[in-house]
Amino acid sequence: MSHTDNDSRGTANGLTSLAEAEFAPRTTYLNTASSGLGPARAAEAVQRAARGWPTGDFSDYDPAVAASRAAFARIAGVPPERVAAGASVSVYAGLIAAGLPSGAEVLVAEGDFSSLVNPFAVRADLKLRTAPLERMAEEIGPGTALVAVSSVQSADGRLADLDAIRTAAAAHGARTLVDATQSAGWLPLRAGDFDYVVCAGFKWLLAPRGVCFLAIGESAAAELPPAFAGWLAGEEPWESCYGPIAQLATSARRFDHSPAYLCYIGAAASLALIEETGVETIHAHNLALADRFTAGLAELGYQAVGTGGSAIVSVPGLGAAAEQLERAGIQVSARAGNLRASFHLYNSAQDVDRILDALPAPVH
Rank of each mutant, 00 (worst) to 15 (best):
S59R: 14
S59G: 14
S59L: 12
S59P: 13
S59I: 11
S59A: 15
D60G: 14
D60W: 08
D60T: 15
Y61W: 15
Y61R: 14
Y61M: 15
Y61F: 15
Y61D: 15
D62R: 14
D62Q: 13
D62S: 11
D62L: 12
D62T: 12
P63V: 07
P63H: 10
P63E: 10
P63K: 12
P63L: 12
P63I: 12
P63C: 10
A64V: 06
A64R: 10
A64S: 15
A64E: 08
A64D: 05
A64F: 09
A64G: 04
V65S: 09
V65M: 10
V65L: 15
V65N: 07
V65T: 02
V65D: 04
V65W: 08
V65E: 11
A66I: 12
A66S: 13
A66Q: 14
A66N: 10
A66H: 11
A67V: 08
A67R: 14
A67H: 10
S68M: 04
S68Y: 08
S68C: 06
S68P: 10
S68K: 06
R69W: 04
R69K: 07
R69C: 08
A70D: 14
A70W: 01
A70T: 13
A70Q: 10
A70E: 13
A70L: 04
A71G: 11
A71K: 04
F72Q: 00
F72R: 00
F72Y: 12
A73I: 01
A73W: 00
A73T: 04
A73G: 03
A73R: 03
A73L: 05
A73F: 01
R74Y: 02
R74V: 05
R74H: 14
R74D: 14
R74A: 15
I75V: 13
I75G: 02
I75R: 03
A76S: 13
A76E: 09
A76Y: 09
A76N: 11
G77D: 02
G77V: 00
G77H: 03
G77P: 04
V78I: 09
V78E: 00
V78Y: 00
P79M: 04
P79L: 03
P79H: 02
P79V: 01
P79R: 07
P79A: 12
P80N: 07
P80Q: 03
P80L: 01
E81F: 02
E81A: 15
E81M: 01
E81Y: 01
E81G: 14
E81H: 06
R82H: 08
R82V: 00
R82L: 01
R82S: 12
R82D: 04
R82I: 00
R82N: 03
R82E: 01
R82T: 05
R82C: 01
V83A: 07
V83K: 04
V83Q: 09
A84V: 06
A84W: 05
A85P: 02
A85C: 15
A85R: 12
A85M: 13
A85G: 03
G86H: 03
G86P: 05
G86V: 07
A87N: 06
A87P: 00
A87I: 08
A87S: 06
A87F: 01
A87L: 10
S88C: 09
S88G: 02
S88W: 01
S88Q: 08
S88F: 03
V89I: 13
V89N: 11
V89G: 12
S90L: 10
S90W: 08
S90E: 13
S90M: 08
S90D: 12
S90F: 09
